[in-house]
Structures are given as C-alpha cells and as structure tokens.
Amino acid sequence: MSSTADHRALRIRDAVRKATGSDSPELSSTLQFLELHGLDLHQEPEDLVLYEVYRDETTSGAVRTFADIVIPGTATRSAHPTTATHGIHFRKIYTPSSPPIVRGETPHVEFSRTTRAVAKIPFDLGLRLSPLAHAPLTYRSRVVPGQTFAALSPFSDLSYEDAIATPLLPELAAALEQRINLSYEAILRMHAENVLHGDLHLDNIMWIADAPSTPVQPIDLASALFREDLSVEEWEAGTFDDLNEFLREAGLLQLNIGRRIQGRCFSESCRLAEELFPAHLAAAMAKLPK
C-alpha cells in the first residue's frame, strides 16, 4: 500500500471509530456502518485496503497470498458491478506462487465451487459466503465477520506436549469445547448435504462471536467436492480429511483437562485416537477417566 493510501486508510479507520459511537464499538456496528457508507468514504479508482486480515508469507518475507477488507475503488465497481452493492468486501489476492494457484484452484474455480456449494449446504452455513467477483488472481466476496478457529485456539502453534501442558482457565476450556462441538456439527451438516469442504484446516472455519445462533461459518470453499462426483472411497476419505483437525483438537482438550468430554466429536476422537495421534498419546487417551 502506498503511503498516501496508508494515510487515507488511517483517516477512514479513525472516522469509523468516531462514527460508530465510541472508540471501542462492537464489530457488528463497525461492519454495518461500512457496508452502508463505505462507498461514500472513498472515490478513487483503486481499492482502499481498510483492514488486513490474512497474510501468507514465506520465511524470506515474500508474500504469496494476502486478504484484506477493502472499500472498492471506482474501477472495481465499474468492472464488477456486484461490488458496488456493498460498502466493503473481502478481497483475496494470489500470486503465481500461491499454493492454491499451484494446485489449480484459481479464483474462477473458487467462485464456481463456492457458488455450487452454497446452493447445496444449509442456509446458515452459506449465508455469509456470497461470492461477488473474480479475476485471474483476485477473488472477492462479502465479508464474513468472524475470527478463525486457528487464531482463537489456545493450542495453535504449540506442539502436542505443550498443548497438553498449557494452563487453561475453566472458562477458556469451556469456550473451546463449545467451538469444537459446534464446528464439528456444522461440518457434519455439510456432509449430510453431500458436500465436502476439501481443505478444512482450522483457519477455514470462522467463529462469529456476535451471532450466537449461527456462530460457525466454514470459509474458503475453493476445494469443495461433491458426492456425485466422487467414488464411495473418495467420499469416505474426504469426510475424514474434513474432520480430522477438529478430532485432534478434541483429543488435545481432553488430554489437557485430564478427562473425557461428552459429545460426538470428543467420543470420536477417543475412538480414532490411534489414527490421530502418536502411540503414547493414543494410549494416554485410552486411559482418560470419564
């Protein structure tokens, strides 16, 4: 982002803080304000990056993929009229070295698969995923107002041993248990509609804190697969691939608190412990008291 754009974004971020009533408004009021008024705040040709939400960088600092919440510039609104209907949107930019591009999951593929999946999966799981536009290295959709499961997990970036040993306040353990349960059930509901996510790591489930009735939102359906296109074996392998990171998270939580937790995901993680964990941890899970 150029220095001029930096200053413009700073100015608009400050204006949003003031306009939404306090320096610390709820996220939903910030987003509602921007969806309504974003276009009035920016009239330049280029998109204005308002908030940075994802970066995939190599250890050498090269950015492979990045995603931002932008106010679309006039050029984007003109080229993709669907973007002129919302004051802000989610914009993901790939480079030729982005892993999805290397796998052939271009923005065009993501747009097509997301559109197809959203038509099949339960309404609440597709509600916020509306694709808006795509170009050879750019994908645009509505903003999903949540935080990724991975970012919220106290076990992220820890080894198994450190995750099991990390001190967890009871309320944090309870919140993680709820996120695991509801995410797992959401994935099963996708499967019941014959759709596999296809790339379901913990950064591809969002938790929307201020939507208590529908807090789980799978995102990034570029790898989605459909039962009618797969063999029975491919479908069964795919369902396990979709679920296994949540099963591991469920296993780590039970090992951390030293007892079994009731619920489908938690009992499955005990049943499948030998497939999910090294032998010593699978053995420890087998010994967990109820």
């Binding site: 709820e26 939400v53 994802y54 919440i69 935080q147 991975a150 970012a151």
Partner: peptide
C-alpha cells in the same frame, strides 16, 4: 481480542 477482529491475523 475476542469478537473484535476479522480473520486470522
């Protein structure tokens, strides 16, 4: 910052 940000970073 639970519930105050969007995405993974």
């Amino acid at each position: 910052n639970p519930g105050r940000t969007i995405g993974s970073h």
